[in-house]
Design a protein around this nucleic acid. Sequence first.
DNA 1: GTAATTTATGTAACCGGTTGCGTAATTGGT
DNA 2: ACCAATTACGCAACCGGTTACATAAATTAC
Lengths: 338, 338
Amino acid sequence: MSKKTTIYDLAKRLGISPATVSRSLNDHPSISGKTKKKVLEAAKETGYRINKFASNLSLQKSNTIGVIVPRLNSDFMSTVLSGIETIANNAGYNLVISQSLEQEEKEKFNTKTLFESGVDALLVSLANETMNYDHFSIFTDRKIPLLFFDRVIDLPNCPTIIIDNEAAGYQATEHLIQQGCKHIIHVSSGLNRSVYKLRYAGYRKALKENENNFRERVIQVDNFSPPEAKKVIDFIKTSVHPIDGIFVSSDSLAVYIIKELRSNGYQVPNDIKVVGFNNDPVAQVITPELSTIEYPGYKMGKLAGQSILSHLSGSINIETADQIILKHRLIIRESSQK
Amino acid sequence: MSKKTTIYDLAKRLGISPATVSRSLNDHPSISGKTKKKVLEAAKETGYRINKFASNLSLQKSNTIGVIVPRLNSDFMSTVLSGIETIANNAGYNLVISQSLEQEEKEKFNTKTLFESGVDALLVSLANETMNYDHFSIFTDRKIPLLFFDRVIDLPNCPTIIIDNEAAGYQATEHLIQQGCKHIIHVSSGLNRSVYKLRYAGYRKALKENENNFRERVIQVDNFSPPEAKKVIDFIKTSVHPIDGIFVSSDSLAVYIIKELRSNGYQVPNDIKVVGFNNDPVAQVITPELSTIEYPGYKMGKLAGQSILSHLSGSINIETADQIILKHRLIIRESSQK
DNA sequence: GTAATTTATGTAACCGGTTGCGTAATTGGT
DNA sequence: ACCAATTACGCAACCGGTTACATAAATTAC
């Protein structure tokens, strides 16, 4: 009971070889039915448990998938993770999850750690800070499946799962324009990450196309925490042109901006219209309810999991890098309607 | 570059034994400085990486901690996980995270999987469904550290980390009473989990002590998702006594109840006062802002991590089961003030 | 009834580190 | 220069499965 039994114990007990025990436990075709039964019974009786350490060493695989995310405690990320976990768990894979906390150094460290711990594949959503991608070469060099989701970078043979951020940014801005906004600002963070850069590009495109002399203006925040809302309000208060529209790259920040606007005497949506991003739960809790871009986190997670699993099972040619673009959707609520 | 080098390769290359290489890499005291240097250099040159599979097998430890949570995508849980991850990662441990989705079967399966995958310790927050705890005996039998947090159960030698839910429930209810509420209901889920049972007990205690003939009434919901709010509203609308106070075991549900109340013509807090639980971000986003119990998730995660690490390092006597009770705090906001 | 197959099991090497024990090499003391 | 005490390193077993290959047993074929 307290002592662990090995296949050698079982072999001795049954007077057969460890190889036969191993094959029986793995339901190998060349073992007779009765022997298998005997082994299974003995295994049950003795409380035998496979030693994955030994199995992993022998098979050179861990049935484990590594994940690196910027942070665990964001509604979007935890939803994606939930999707990944569901798929992975169902397929018998464990998930080793670590967070980079937006730091390049931590991301590097985690990449190395996960590599050494022998994950069979790695899923990554990049840190804002990360500018160099060499740390992923230990995976790509050895053809270990590597996939990026949401915060992606284009590396050879690495699938990516994203939404069309540029189109989303365009639609959000276009919507504000159609609602009559003349001076729309964009609030974003870390423009070196493509997600944000593309939303910004979409914003600019929409402004350009609508031959107004709107001046584009990005307020870059350090992160999407509540205090950053103040920076936006400060800008608005001191702006020469009266700001009447805000496209924020994050719902969580958007709601704080709305609160801050209201406490500064601005009416939303009358004075200023706001569109967020993500469709976080808070979007439907704030008054007025927040217009936003629906971002299919759970689906993204499931697809990321499925994609990497099919790579692992070899049913997809690893050399064929693919890109999956999920549908997003502009959800119009009160915060942006005239 | 593409071929992995082993300590045997290094040994051959340097004309020394694998044992010396191993000891050098582990900075063993009985190896001379020059040899160590030689080995380290050769390791760098050849791009040597330790094979954790082999190391784990030999050492019978994985530097991995398993975690089972009801679900990943809840603000509270992901915050706890973030705390655990920070501590674990810092100490060189990986985190294998899985979710039970509130199902006893999945919890059992995950427990078994994590055991077999050789985690050095297990952290668990129980599923609502779970009624039987035998599946944890594989851990307790073999003295593998097992710790419960938040949704706990008292098992021999298993530390727990919680808050004083009864006191919190008491305070929340008492506060409502002091604000003049005469008919307070409690909204909760799965009363077989101690967290919820204790909050309920606190609620009852507060009612009893205030010698009114308040009748206690629990509305039990299946989960804390938005649709469940309707059940609560239905009860309130058909109640003989006019309900004027609600203590909800979850902020996320509380905000939907408030929204639903408002759209049914009730004024919060004038007609009905509401207190939630958790201090989720939504609590400050809803209008009126939600009074709630602050629940220190990040700290809970960090403590869970630290506690289990000290068990692993042996600095705490494993036989001494401890219980850590974190401080909670009633945060009074608009939703409950007269 | 014997050879040709097919089926069932055993042998032994391998996966790549780790470590107790023994020995050779170096240092130190006098 | 000689013996003792350190110090540095090698040998070999071990961790527990997995699997190619060999071999023995059971079937089938003629």
